[in-house]
């Protein structure tokens, strides 16, 4: 399956590069409204046609890719760091702290997240720029998405604490900080890394879900979520198959992340 991993990585690099270079590649601004050309079919001028406000779909897809593909890993980094801190501390300390953290994690996991995100979004300040709004959305995702990963890391840390390696290290006189730096963190890195890679597609999909509810990235900034909203009118699919482009890109990107992740797990 080496070829599949290579293909997936290549695709991800291309997508990332296209997003990063959107300013140069995109034929138009993502916000420019060609009001005389709303909802037109693909042409040499507009490769994926225009949306219902006359904005160039291809340009919006490129800029949306930049937002989703850059900010989802950032949110994944935040959530993985939080998970490492909370789960690692609980597993390492054990006892009542572990019990409390696990109870809190269970509670966190049982909450209806979509509704909580909607509520949390409603409490945020209104007067923020679209860029700040997108950063807030992903920061929220990052801050709220640690629980499942924390559980895994806590279990791993607990197992590690009970392992012969740590027993031997303790017997050799290693202090708590040294144990953490030399033994615990390096041994938790593979699982942390796996959690990080798993979170990226999850956050992309969550933002897409929020976007479909109209609660993701603010206008006029595009994201995959806001672009996917065009698919709400599912009866128009057969007449306008190019509307599938963002969905196709999302599915391919998420699939590629999974293929890449599988191989990373093999390495660990």
């Amino acid at each position: 399956m080496k070829w599949a991993r290579r293909a997936a990585m290549t695709f991800l690099v291309v997508v990332l590069a296209a997003g990063l270079l959107a300013n140069w590649i995109a034929p138009d601004s993502y916000a420019r409204q060609f009001r005389d050309l709303p909802d037109v079919a693909p042409s040499s001028q507009h490769w994926l046609g225009t949306d219902d406000l006359g904005r160039d779909r291809f340009s919006r897809l490129l800029y949306g890719t930049r937002i989703s593909v850059l900010l989802a890993p950032a949110a994944a980094l935040v959530s993985s760091a939080l998970a490492a801190l909370i789960g690692g501390a609980a597993g390492f300390a054990g006892g009542w702290l572990e019990g409390c953290v696990m109870a809190a994690t269970d509670l966190f996991l049982s909450l209806p997240w979509l509704f909580l995100l909607i509520t949390a979004r409603a409490f945020l300040p209104l007067n923020v720029s679209p860029l700040a709004s997108v950063a807030i959305t992903f920061a929220l995702l990052g801050c709220l998405g640690w629980a499942a990963a924390a559980r895994v890391i806590c279990a791993d840390a607990r197992a590690l604490c009970d392992s012969d390696i740590l027993l031997l290290a303790r017997a050799s006189g290693s202090s708590g900080w040294r144990l953490l730096r030399r033994h615990v963190i390096p041994n938790l890195m593979p699982v942390l890394s796996a959690q990080f890679w798993i979170s990226i597609p999850v956050f992309i999909l969550t933002e897409a879900n929020l976007g479909i509810l109209g609660l993701g990235v603010a206008e006029p900034l595009p994201s995959w979520g806001s672009l996917l909203r065009e698919l709400e009118n599912f009866s128009a699919f057969s007449a306008q198959p190019w509307l599938f482009a963002p969905l196709l890109l999302l599915v391919l990107t998420v699939s590629c992340f999974h293929v890449a992740l599988e191989n990373r797990e093999v390495w660990t």
């Binding site: 979004r121 923020v128 609660l215």
Partner: peptide
Amino acid sequence: RMAAMIQQDLAGVGIRLNIVTLD
């Protein structure tokens, strides 16, 4: 969509409009 169009219209007189959709 109306909000997005108004946002562009108001940009024409130098006003920055932030659109917020709420449940």
